[in-house]
Design a protein around this nucleic acid. Sequence first.
DNA 1: CCGTTGACGCCAT
DNA 2: TATGGCGCCAACG
Length: 118
Amino acid sequence: MSKPVKQSEINSDFFDRVYQVVRLIPAGRATSYGAIAKYLGAARSSRLVGYAMNGAHVHSDIPAHRVVNRNGMLSGKHHFPPHLSMELLLTQEGIVVADDQIQNWKEVFWDPEEGLRL
DNA sequence: CCGTTGACGCCAT
DNA sequence: TATGGCGCCAACG
């Protein structure tokens, strides 16, 4: 198994799946768009995860700030309001951020497959 | 209906 | 190590 599959062949609620996973990210930890896509069986559709986050602002219970790119860089900071920037939110959770990048990324990174004990 | 865009990531050079 | 190209697929004009 583990064969790449188009998300459209899996289900039509890809975004909801993404939101579900993001909600499970523990405070003080963070994951990447690619890790979520991979967990959902659409490893090559990481861009869709980012797109899903774009509409996550309507769901105030989704910690979108805990999702960054594979390098731990805050590539989506530009989409947050000034008073609730990614850097601020992450810092409040104990994550160290410098130059728009999460420090100790290897330790902070939360893999959905590991965290959810797949 | 068609071309562009985009909170990404892998691979080639 | 750094840079550029391509795939992926929904949303938009």
